[in-house]
Computed example of a mutant assay.
Amino acid sequence: MTTHDPGGRPGEAQIRALPKVLLHDHLDGGLRPQTVLELADAAAHPLPASDADSLAEWFRDAADSGSLVRYLETFAHTTAVMQTADNLARVAREAVLDLAADGVVYAEQRWAPEQHLAGGLALAEAVEAVQAGIDDGIAAAAAQGRFIRVGQLLGAMRQADRWQEVAQLAVTYRDAGVVGFDIAGPEDGFLPSRHLPVWRYLAEHDVPVTIHAGEAAGLDSIGQAVHLGQADRLGHGARIIDDIAFVADDGTADLGRLAHWVRDHQIPLELCPTSNLQTGVADSVATHPITRLKELDFAVTLNTDNRLMSRTSMTHEMQRLVDGAGWTLDDLVDVTVTAAWGAFMHHDERRDLVEQVILPGFQKVEGALV
């Protein structure tokens, strides 16, 4: 286990103790390997490995191809075991407990209900099952002395045509655990313009929106997300870097119009370094756009994306940036506070989270670094 250095860079123990905010984490991408084994056995679903360690390795290796399409194929095994109310509730409960154990104090769990109907569930039943699991997980975490708040982010699959149906589901459950709407799946070729009325409908019903954009596709995807989709946040958004010309080694940059728009409006970027390396967005943590974008005052947040496929956690993501990109405790508090202010909850709730939970938690760790 590492310790901290004199430059204010925390070690693993300090990072693990930090309060964390997670805006981009897929429910079907964060299962425990042992849970996948047990649920697959009960459902007679064949898996590529027969023990938890080997299965965990398989998920990571399969997701490490550099292709988003290949990465997404790994979800066939996780969604296959999430087709009953009991299984959905178990997965959601365990996700909450795992996040709380990692120091996460606020999280949004995104998932696509339309992918969990093969066992006969209706869309609403699936949402209610996940909410039951979240509620149980929060209560169990509290019994362990850990505070966490979790909301559901309902996603529609880009390549399907159930966007409006899922949007209506988000409206129905807006005050019953659902905090927002997303579109996910193959980004290239399935842009927000595919179903334009959805975005007006969501805006008219005051449902916050985040859109996967700027991961597998480029600036056109981001532009449509913020202008047509009226996205409050961008899922990934890393390729906004393509609209920035770095003209000197000292970091001087010339922003294009879209980059200015995203920065001027402080639209949070839900960046996921480990996942982005797997899908070919960057070659290393050191060259990942997250650091340059943060230096340029974009609203940068740090996320896990899929904890199973990337074998990651918020502690791991933070540690990678400290070790590989020279981040300090100040950098970590910046992205955490930015994430809290970008959370899909009300302003006063964001303020309380920052002032009563996040800043005191960081100050406690900072005191240990002195």
Rank of each mutant, 00 (worst) to 15 (best):
I211S: 03
V198N: 09
L196A: 15
H195R: 14
G189V: 02
G185A: 12
G214S: 05
P192D: 06
L202M: 04
W199Q: 12
G185Q: 09
A203P: 00
V207I: 15
R194N: 02
R194G: 01
W199A: 04
A184I: 14
H205K: 13
P197D: 01
H212Y: 06
D206L: 01
A213Y: 01
V207W: 02
S193L: 07
G185N: 11
T210Q: 03
E187M: 09
I183P: 01
I211L: 15
A184Q: 04
A203K: 15
H195T: 15
I183A: 12
G185P: 04
D182K: 14
D182H: 11
L191F: 14
G214P: 01
D182Y: 08
V198R: 11
E187C: 11
A184Y: 00
F190W: 14
T210G: 09
D188E: 10
V207F: 00
L202W: 07
A216M: 06
P186E: 05
P192A: 10
V209A: 11
E187L: 11
I211R: 09
H205I: 11
R194A: 11
R194K: 15
H195W: 04
I183F: 11
H205R: 15
A203Q: 14
A184C: 13
P197V: 08
L191K: 04
S193T: 14
E215F: 03
D206A: 14
G189K: 08
T210S: 13
A184E: 01
I211V: 15
E215S: 09
L202C: 07
E215A: 06
V207T: 12
A203L: 06
G214D: 02
P186W: 02
L196P: 09
P208D: 07
D188R: 14
G185V: 11
H195S: 14
D206S: 12
R194F: 00
E215P: 05
R194S: 09
I211H: 02
P197S: 04
P197I: 13
D188C: 05
W199E: 08
E204C: 00
A216K: 06
P208V: 11
S193C: 07
E187P: 03
I211E: 02
T210D: 01
Y201T: 08
V209C: 05
P197T: 07
A213N: 03
H212A: 05
L202H: 03
H212I: 11
H212D: 10
T210A: 12
E204A: 15
A216H: 05
L196H: 09
A213D: 00
H195D: 14
H195M: 01
H205Q: 10
V207N: 10
V207Y: 01
P186T: 11
V198H: 09
A216N: 12
E204H: 12
H205D: 00
I183N: 06
P208F: 00
V209Y: 08
A203D: 03
H212K: 12
E204N: 14
W199K: 07
Y201N: 04
I211T: 04
V209K: 15
E215I: 07
V207S: 05
H212T: 13
E204Y: 00
L191P: 07
R200G: 12
V207A: 03
A213C: 02
V207P: 06
H195V: 15
G185M: 10
P197Q: 02
L202I: 13
A184T: 15
P192I: 12
A213L: 04
D188S: 12
